[in-house]
Amino acid sequence: MTKYVYDFAEGGRDLKDLLGGKGGNLAEMARLGLPVPPGFTITTDACRAFLRTGSAPYGLDDEIELHLERLEDRAGRRFGDPADPLLVSVRSGAKFSMPGMMETILDVGLTDATVAGLAARTGDERFAQDCYRRLIQMYGRTVCGIPGDAFTGDSVERHKAIFREYTGHDFPQDPREQLDTAIRAVFTSWNSERAVLYRRQERIPSNLGTAVNVVAMVFGNLGADSGTGVAFTRDPATGERGVYGDYLANAQG
Rank of each mutant, 00 (worst) to 15 (best):
L118Q: 11
D81Q: 06
R91S: 13
G54L: 04
F40A: 02
L66C: 01
S55T: 08
P82F: 15
A128M: 12
A120H: 01
F96Q: 15
R121G: 08
E65Q: 12
I105E: 02
L60H: 02
D112E: 15
F79D: 12
Y132P: 00
G100M: 04
A120Q: 12
L118A: 14
L106K: 09
A46K: 00
D61V: 11
P99T: 04
L34R: 04
E72H: 09
T41Q: 09
S92C: 07
T43S: 15
F50R: 10
R52W: 03
T104D: 03
A56G: 02
G117W: 03
Y58G: 14
F96S: 14
D73T: 07
A46G: 05
D61A: 15
L110V: 07
L71I: 06
G93V: 05
R70P: 08
R78N: 05
P38H: 11
L110M: 12
L66P: 01
A116I: 08
T122A: 02
A113L: 15
I105S: 00
A113W: 10
L60D: 01
E125R: 11
E72R: 05
V88D: 06
D81L: 11
E125C: 02
L110F: 08
A128E: 06
L118E: 09
T43D: 08
D81T: 12
D130P: 01
P37R: 10
E125F: 00
P37L: 03
P99C: 02
Y58D: 15
G54D: 08
D124M: 04
R52V: 06
I105W: 13
R121A: 12
P85N: 10
A49M: 05
T41E: 08
V108P: 04
Y132H: 11
D61M: 13
A49Y: 03
R74L: 12
L87E: 13
R77I: 03
R77P: 09
F96K: 14
R126T: 11
I42P: 02
T122R: 00
C131K: 00
P57V: 02
Y58R: 14
L118W: 01
T43Y: 07
T43H: 10
F127H: 12
T114E: 07
P57L: 09
A75H: 05
R78Q: 13
D62P: 09
D62I: 07
E72V: 02
G109M: 06
V88M: 03
A113M: 10
L87N: 04
Q129S: 01
F40M: 08
D107N: 14
A128D: 03
P35A: 09
F79G: 05
F40V: 06
G93I: 06
L68S: 08
T41W: 11
L118I: 03
S89F: 03
